[in-house]
Computed example of a mutant assay.
Amino acid sequence: MRTIPAATALLNAALLTTAVLTTSTPVPATAGGPADGTTRVVLRMPDCEGCTVQVVSALATDDPDEPRLWASLEKRVRDGKVAFPVPSTRTAGMQVLLDAPWEGHLGYRTTVVLRYAGQQPGEEMTVREARDRNRASSCFEGTSRDRVVLPVRTRPVQVQGVHERVRGTLAFAARAVPWLSPMDRAVDGVLGSQDLRVCR
């Protein structure tokens, strides 16, 4: 699995985001998208009130040392949802990271699973089924639509923390979405990130 240190990746992505937001060069519209080429990503997370969420994108390029990076600011889930304006060209390789109020000292950031191994796009997943899965992808295929709504199921669960068993979070898309590789190891359905995954 190709990864890059999270701190470096998010710093570079933040600088890149600033450049995109301040440039005077117009962004061409994509088919089905708005004039500014932005996709509004709405995450419905009714069981994660108060969670801090961030959307990031890391997509492989021809140069393995230079993936395309982008990161949003962090936002808090309020009234069961949170929304992000994402450049449509950055939705490929998009991933959702979260920190829940109940989590202990994990040593990683909880990562929303968009598809478990064996799932087809649109197939529903239950908490009980998710707990039996050990391979998962967090990488979104991408879209040119102006709005995407993603229902996300979250549950507090016991996981291995840095020093002991603590509360962590099982987080996954209620229905599998079109995805990119890699397909990584999940522990009882839980996926975490210490480094930023590079999608391809």
Rank of each mutant, 00 (worst) to 15 (best):
N134Y: 10
Q160V: 11
A171D: 03
R155K: 13
L97C: 02
V152W: 11
R133P: 01
S137E: 10
G118M: 11
G118S: 09
G142L: 05
P151V: 02
A117E: 15
M125E: 13
T111Y: 01
T110V: 13
Y116Q: 10
R175D: 10
Q119P: 06
H163E: 07
D146W: 12
S138T: 10
T169N: 04
R131T: 06
L106E: 03
F172Q: 09
A100W: 03
R115L: 13
R155H: 08
T110G: 11
A136F: 03
G168Q: 01
R147H: 06
L106P: 12
V162P: 04
A130S: 02
T111P: 06
L150V: 14
A100C: 15
M125H: 05
G168E: 00
R147E: 15
V112I: 09
L150R: 07
T126R: 05
P156T: 06
M125C: 13
G168F: 02
V149L: 07
T143S: 15
V149Y: 08
R155F: 04
H163F: 11
R155W: 06
G161Q: 01
G104S: 05
T111C: 05
G168M: 02
P156E: 05
Q95C: 06
A171Y: 10
R133W: 03
E164A: 15
Y108M: 01
S138N: 13
Q160M: 14
T143Y: 12
E123D: 13
Q95Y: 06
R109S: 14
T126Q: 04
T110D: 12
Q160A: 12
V113A: 15
S137V: 13
L98I: 03
P151S: 02
E129T: 14
R147G: 02
T111L: 03
V112Q: 07
V152H: 09
E129G: 02
H105G: 00
F140P: 07
A174Q: 15
C139Q: 07
Y116I: 09
G118V: 10
L97S: 03
H105V: 02
R109C: 04
S137Q: 11
R153I: 09
Q160Y: 05
G107R: 03
G122C: 11
R131A: 05
S144R: 10
Q158C: 00
R155G: 00
L114S: 05
P156M: 09
C139K: 08
V149G: 05
P121L: 12
L170Q: 04
R135W: 09
A174M: 13
G161K: 00
M125V: 15
S138H: 05
D132Q: 15
S137W: 11
E103G: 00
D146H: 13
G161R: 00
Q160C: 05
P151H: 06
P101Q: 11
V159C: 01
R131W: 02
Y116G: 10
R131P: 00
F140K: 07
R147P: 01
S137C: 14
S144D: 02
